[in-house]
Simulated scan of single mutants.
Amino acid sequence: MNIVILKGRLTRDSEIKEFQGGGKVLNNALALSRVWYDQDRNKHEETDFVDIKANFVDIKANNGVADFIAKWFKKGDGISIEGRLKQESWHDKETGANRSRIVVLVENAFLS
């Protein structure tokens, strides 16, 4: 099973990339913060960053989730997303190395 639910803040305004074949994808990232206190009551905070993508036309995400995010959310806004993990691989033209990363493909988004 590949289901991810995250609640965070957008790190920037969404970037919309258009392809020659007419497809579009929304790219952004979430900042996921966690605050905790140790046994001496010292406050600790850590933030992780996760890349997210949403297709404008997707069989499973045909509810306009990319349009919804692009229209209603800006940098710093809180958002909750549901999606799935996907590993992307590519060949780096500058270094010649094979590269990869894991992104979240967003299938649903909610005000947070």
Rank of each mutant, 00 (worst) to 15 (best):
S14T: 12
N108G: 05
K24P: 01
A29K: 07
G96L: 04
S100I: 07
W90K: 05
L85C: 11
L26V: 08
A109C: 05
K75H: 10
K60W: 12
A70M: 00
I5W: 01
W36I: 05
T11C: 07
I69P: 00
G8D: 01
D13Y: 01
W72D: 15
L26R: 10
S112L: 12
D13E: 07
T47D: 10
L85T: 13
K75M: 07
N55C: 14
N108Q: 09
I69V: 03
K75W: 04
Q39I: 04
T47S: 13
R84A: 15
I79D: 07
H91N: 04
S100L: 04
K86R: 15
A29N: 09
K17A: 13
G8V: 00
L6M: 12
L26D: 04
I69W: 02
N62Y: 11
I69G: 00
V57E: 13
R84V: 10
K7C: 11
T95E: 05
I79W: 11
N108V: 01
L6E: 05
K74G: 13
H91I: 03
D92R: 03
G64N: 00
E82L: 09
N63A: 08
L30W: 02
T11Q: 03
I3H: 12
E107I: 08
F110Q: 07
S89N: 14
R41W: 08
K24H: 07
V4N: 10
R12C: 05
S80C: 10
S80E: 09
G76D: 11
K17E: 15
E18S: 15
F49Q: 10
G76L: 12
Y37E: 14
G23Y: 12
K43F: 04
S100P: 06
S14L: 04
F68M: 02
S89I: 12
R99A: 01
A29E: 13
I79Q: 09
S14A: 15
F56E: 04
R34H: 14
R34P: 08
V35I: 05
E88P: 02
K53R: 14
K75N: 09
V104D: 09
W72K: 14
K43T: 04
L30Q: 00
E82F: 04
K86S: 14
R12T: 10
I3L: 12
G76A: 15
V25A: 03
V65I: 03
D58R: 15
I5E: 09
G64R: 01
G76I: 05
T11R: 08
I69K: 05
R101M: 12
R9E: 09
N98P: 03
A61R: 05
A109V: 01
D77S: 10
H44M: 02
E18Y: 09
S80V: 10
F19L: 07
R99W: 04
I102V: 15
D92E: 10
I79K: 08
F110K: 02
H91Q: 09
R84K: 15
L6H: 05
R101Y: 09
D51F: 03
D58F: 08
V104E: 07
N98E: 12
V106K: 00
G78E: 11
T47C: 11
L105M: 13
A70K: 13
